[in-house]
Design a protein around this nucleic acid. Structure first.
Lengths: 337, 337
DNA sequence: GAATTTATTTCAATCGATTGCACTTTAACA
DNA sequence: TGTTAAAGTGCAATCGATTGAAATAAATTC
């Protein structure tokens, strides 16, 4: 890489000191108009751009945000990244992306990487495997602002931004009931994840609200296409198979539809299905999937905005009070119900 | 943010100089075993981690790669990012992501941002809007290694990593012909993009190979769901509508299927469709979409590897010879043909 | 015991930009 | 013609880590 032009180069050519150049470039009132003009002209001519790395060192800040995320290759997360990048861009921050691949071990390494890279703040959605959170606690102990999104945990003293999972689940199941379903199954996410718990709880409460008894045998752990397809196969071959399905995400929901059709059942006539996410696939599936929109883009934006707010208020040493932001969800009714 | 432990802190507590600490930590032979042990112990105790920013400044390198990409929220690109991050991670590089949102203006700003952030190298897939490439030329003039992927241009003296678009298109159209299609339409990407040109050319040559005349009226510019749906509507209502469709990407292909079904045509009996990408949606569509897998993950990996190779060979001042790497594609036959 | 190695450790400069303070002009005033 | 204020620049330290060269301490040799 070519040596970049520095303030020193300009100083040398103009026979001035580096201090003068520095001040001239930032319109310091001490510098005479003549000098200022000369400096600016030469700087432009040489294509000078301040070395951010040097500034980072001096200011002890990098204008960079670290993002730790399970997997980029997932519609919901890429929508979130999109929202994050949008806000970062508008505020002149850069985003460093670290992918955990749903691996706890790699996530721990990621937290070290953000520390090493001296990012100003970190946005985190942790992996499914993660049950110990001390690596995040270390970030917090280092007083690096951290905002958790989507996958969150209350034990950590940190801000959270989440979709209203409970509300979304409630809406979804309520909708199924209104459409006439009496027996409704839930394909759930692991219960150590807040999203798993909240969506189950929304499902549970919607049933009770309509005096439908909660049946544990209708709750299955299945949050991927493959596991859901298998589970759907089993459950749909029971004589008393459920006629309504609420899946924790769109891929699981689509797997249910596929399997139902495969078994000769009609959707939505025989079986109704609701997903969660409103991914691109939801609109493609046949029939098109009724689903809960969790506004990934907005969620990413909010998370980033919350982090930036913390970064700006860093000096103020008032007591830290974690903020939990909940993004309302919305039921998108399509032809699968 | 809390002040991080520095080498100075350790030096002070141990009554040694910073040079000694520095050398002790990196097992320099000059340092006595006693001192070395003491230093390492205290460093571990205090949780010392070297300040990467300071090192960056000194070494004039950041171990960071800049990634400029049209839109993250697109299966193909997120797969590529995944591959890039994978290779970067294994080589202790970090990835800074800049999204152009298919906007030329923003892309120009992005190139400035990677310069400012002093990344060691840049990976680029440019926006659809981009027709002037001087902002990339500026990167190259600054001798920052740049590797273009997917959307590339030959005018720039830079490495390229692309899918074998010509081969993929040829395979796809050949397949349609073998399945009995006589009239085959092509939904194309803008022709100023190499992918647009190559895929059209593969389509063209496959037709000629089977002595089917090329018919310009069967080539439509439509590379998004909406435009493709509209175009499909028009073309399928012609009395002599084509029975085979080769779309430049999966979303366009799926739009064709949707529209065909909407018009009462059966897929694949009346109309056969092939896409390009092998996105997640391809497996979800009904019928499942025959498509060309362009191995986004591998493409990202190769692009990153090529960039890292350049970064390692930077000293060697041999003449620069751009390398073009072509990733073979593969036809994935499903039930839409 | 003096001279000479050898083993340790420190000094000081460097990377690029910033900034409080000191210094030199020049202008203004009495 | 001093005296003083104002304007414009430069000096030097700083951020954290590294490293060639110099300096000190300890060990060895004659």
């Amino acid at each position: 890489m070519k040596r970049q032009i520095t303030i020193k180069d300009i100083a040398l050519k103009l026979g001035l000191s580096t201090s003068t150049i520095s001040r001239a470039l930032k319109d310091h009132p001490d510098i005479s108009p003549k000098t200022r003009a000369a400096v600016k002209e030469l700087a432009a001519l040489l294509g000078y751009r301040p070395n951010r790395v040097a500034l980072n060192l001096r200011n002890n800040s990098t204008s960079t945000i670290g993002l730790i995320i399970p997997e980029i290759e997932h519609y919901f997360f890429s929508a979130i990244i999109n929202g994050i990048e949008e806000v970062a861009y508008k505020n002149d921050y850069s985003v460093m992306v670290f992918q955990s691949n749903e691996s706890y071990k790699r996530e721990v390494i990621n937290t070290q990487a953000v520390l090493t890279n001296r990012v100003d703040g970190v946005l985190v959605s942790f992996s499914k495997e993660t049950k110990d959170f001390s690596h995040f606690q270390k970030l917090i102990d280092n007083e690096i602002p951290v905002v958790f999104f989507d996958r969150v945990i209350d034990e950590l003293q940190a801000d959270q931004v989440v979709a209203d999972d409970y509300q979304g689940a409630f809406l979804a199941v309520n909708h199924l009931i209104e459409k006439g379903c009496k027996r409704i199954a839930h394909f759930a996410a692991p219960q150590h994840l807040a999203i798993g718990k909240s969506r189950l709880s929304g499902y549970h409460d919607a049933l009770l609200r309509h005096n439908i008894p909660f049946d544990q045998s209708l709750v299955v752990l299945a949050d991927t296409f493959e596991t859901a397809r298998k589970a759907a196969h089993d459950i749909l071959r029971r004589p008393d198979y459920p006629t309504g399905f609420f899946a924790v995400n769109d891929m699981a929901a689509i797997a249910i539809i596929k399997e139902a059709k495969h078994l000769g059942l009609r959707v939505p006539e025989d079986v109704k299905v609701v997903g969660f996410e409103n991914s691109r696939s939801a609109a493609i599936s046949e029939p098109e999937l009724t689903t809960v929109d969790q506004f990934g883009f907005e969620l990413g934006r909010e998370a980033c905005q919350q982090l930036l707010k913390r970064l700006k208020n860093e000096e103020k040493n008032t007591e830290f009070k974690p903020i939990k932001k909940v993004i309302k969800t919305r039921l998108v009714v399509r032809s699968s119900t």
